[in-house]
């Protein structure tokens, strides 16, 4: 067991109350070269200390939404509508210099594959110290000591030695821990975790999930947890947003979503994974339409068993169906 660092007072995870930490309002992203939309009117709120799960299949816009939380857009992708408000400040309007001071400091990002995200030619310690220097002005001995403290906070065994290791010298789980330590170095309030355990073995995945939950408890960190795996989301999230073809189709508290899913797509996702002991799966025909080929009406209509004429002609809006529960469907 590593010594626990108690620099930060324990914070109770708060329920949704007060002002959201981050609020995405009607965000639309466009792929400039092909002139089609990738995200359309995405609304999301993340409250302090909350874990919001963002789930959907590939190509539905989860990762783009995650990057937008840092004011980042891949090349060729430009926002055409909406705002990304962090504590009331719109990241899309701030000058680049201010956004850079915010990235890593207020919001940090961890990726699926830490081997690609870490720089292979610098030691783990150097890369953490770089963040400490940039965002917290720590140098020399102080930076080194803080880097070791961060590595022990993420329970990397033997941090004094590991700090001198290069990324390739660490195992997959250790690299992910090192990346989390690096993300924590700027003392962010929000962590965007994009499929953080997908590249890991299940037993290691379980350890990383425990670590993220522990960090939330201890630091009051809010986490946007992006994953394609609903079972995983169920383990960690307080609230869940389901995305389909570039838009949010359902938002609800975790228990509400799993016990009382309203959108047919959410239902289908829930029954598509083999559970223990099942011998039959409910099939969802077809696949997610790619951007530029979204149907005019409800984007899920072509795959939906309950579609009616209206679904094919009109585009449904998000509609509240219960406390904190909204769904984009005419029928439910």
């Amino acid at each position: 067991m590593q010594p626990r660092s108690d620099g930060v007072a324990a914070v109770e995870p708060r329920a949704r109350e007060g002002v959201p930490l981050l609020r995405i309002e009607a965000l639309g992203l466009c792929f400039i070269p092909k002139r089609y939309a990738l995200l359309d009117k995405v609304d999301l709120e993340i409250f302090p200390g909350e874990i919001l799960g963002l789930v959907g299949e590939s190509g539905c816009g989860k990762s783009l939404t995650g990057l937008a939380c840092l004011g980042l857009f891949p090349s060729g992708v430009k926002p055409f509508s909406g705002r990304v408000l962090f504590k009331g400040k719109d990241l899309l309007c701030l000058p680049e210099k201010e956004v850079r001071a915010y990235r890593g400091r207020r919001v940090a990002l961890i990726f699926q594959e830490p081997l690609n995200a870490l720089n292979p030619v610098f030691t783990v310690g150097y890369q953490i110290e770089e963040v400490l220097k940039l965002h917290r002005g720590l140098r020399g001995e102080a930076a080194r000591a803080e880097a070791i403290r961060l590595l022990s906070e993420v329970r990397l065994p033997d941090p004094e030695t590991r700090i001198r290791n290069y990324p390739h010298e660490l195992s997959g789980g250790m690299r992910q821990r090192a990346m989390i330590a690096m993300a924590l170095a700027g003392e962010p309030e929000l962590l965007v975790a994009d499929e953080p355990t997908t590249a890991l073995d299940v037993t290691v995945q379980a350890q990383i999930l425990d670590l993220l939950l522990e960090l939330r408890e201890r630091r009051g960190l809010a986490i946007l947890f992006i994953s394609h795996d609903l079972a995983l989301i169920r383990e960690v999230a307080d609230r869940v947003a389901v995305m389909y073809a570039g838009e949010v189709v359902e938002v609800a508290g975790k228990d509400e979503l799993f016990e009382n899913p309203r959108h047919p797509y959410t239902e289908a996702l829930l029954s598509a994974r083999p559970e223990f002991g099942t011998r039959k799966l409910r099939l969802l025909p077809g696949q997610v339409p790619s951007p530029g080929k979204w149907p005019a009406g409800c984007r899920f209509a072509p795959r939906c068993r309950e579609r009616e004429l209206r679904c094919e002609e009109e585009h449904p809006e998000m509609r509240p169906v219960g406390p904190g529960h909204a769904v984009r469907c005419f029928r439910r």
């Binding site: 997959g172 789980g173 250790m174 299940v202 290691v204 999930l209 795996d229 995983l232 169920r234 383990e235």
Partner: peptide, 20 residues
Amino acid sequence: LLLSSVPGRRKRKGPQTIGE
């Protein structure tokens, strides 16, 4: 260990995984 690491089946305070 494998079974108890599967998301959705994890026991919160069960025997924890040791290392890799």
